[in-house]
């Protein structure tokens, strides 16, 4: 059987796995966006906190995904939840870091005129800092999404579901077309996410 025959005959279950994979990534990135942007904003107010938070994220990133899953397994068990937590942790760094740098990069003159005219710190954050940092934050979200699409494949190993299942089944049953089908679909998803989010980023940058 070649890979295309396989993909056509099994399109329904492949579609199912693709949706599952997408859902896993989407949910993980969504949670990471909410946590990451809030953390990224908070640490701009304190140098110590920023060093602390960015270092933790950096360390998390260097943990190999297998080791991370193995580490989380005893706490959260086999399945979707452990996979999800691992993916959220991986997406955090680019989002926290980009939120932080995006806000820190805003020229001082802009903030000074905002405060000097009597804007409240809350309004400065919502009307000036976040909108100006948005393209950079978006770039972080894009990096996180593309990265997590790949890592989610590995999370299938502990039963989180998604396209990774094809790959692991392919390996255990020595069916290369399964591995290939999984790899192709994951790549397509990654490329599409990259293009779409890149387009969004570009739109935000237009000033």
């Amino acid at each position: 059987m070649n890979v295309f025959e396989f993909m056509i005959t099994r399109r329904e279950s492949l579609w199912h796995l693709t949706v599952e994979h997408f859902y896993l990534v989407f949910l993980a990135v969504l949670i990471a966006v909410i946590i990451g942007i809030i953390v990224g904003i908070i640490i701009t107010y304190s140098y110590t906190a920023s060093v602390f938070a960015l270092t933790i994220c950096q360390v998390l990133m260097t943990v190999p995904s297998m080791a991370m899953l193995g580490f989380l397994l005893p706490f959260f068990g086999i399945g979707f939840r452990t996979g999800m937590i691992a993916l959220v942790l991986y997406s955090l760094l680019p989002i926290v870091r980009n939120t932080y740098t995006g806000i820190r990069e805003i020229p001082n003159s802009i903030l000074e005129s905002a405060y000097g005219m009597g804007m409240t710190p809350w309004h400065v954050l919502l009307r000036i800092q976040v909108p100006l940092a948005l393209p950079v934050i978006m770039a972080g979200i894009r990096t996180a999404t593309v990265m997590v699409i790949g890592i989610a494949a590995i999370a299938s190993y502990i039963g989180a579901g998604g396209l990774g299942e094809l790959i692991f089944h392919g390996i255990s049953r020595t069916q290369p077309y399964r591995i290939l089908a999984g790899a192709i679909l994951i790549s397509i998803m990654a490329v599409m996410a990259d293009l779409i989010l890149g387009w969004v980023e570009e739109r935000l940058m237009v000033r």
Partner: peptide, 21 residues
């Protein structure tokens, strides 16, 4: 209160500091 004070004082800085977005 600094915010109340500043709202009553027009402020032009050297770098102008317009909001680009």
């Amino acid at each position: 209160n600094p915010i109340k004070l500043r709202l009553g004082i027009g402020y032009v800085i050297q770098e102008i500091g317009l909001f680009p977005h």
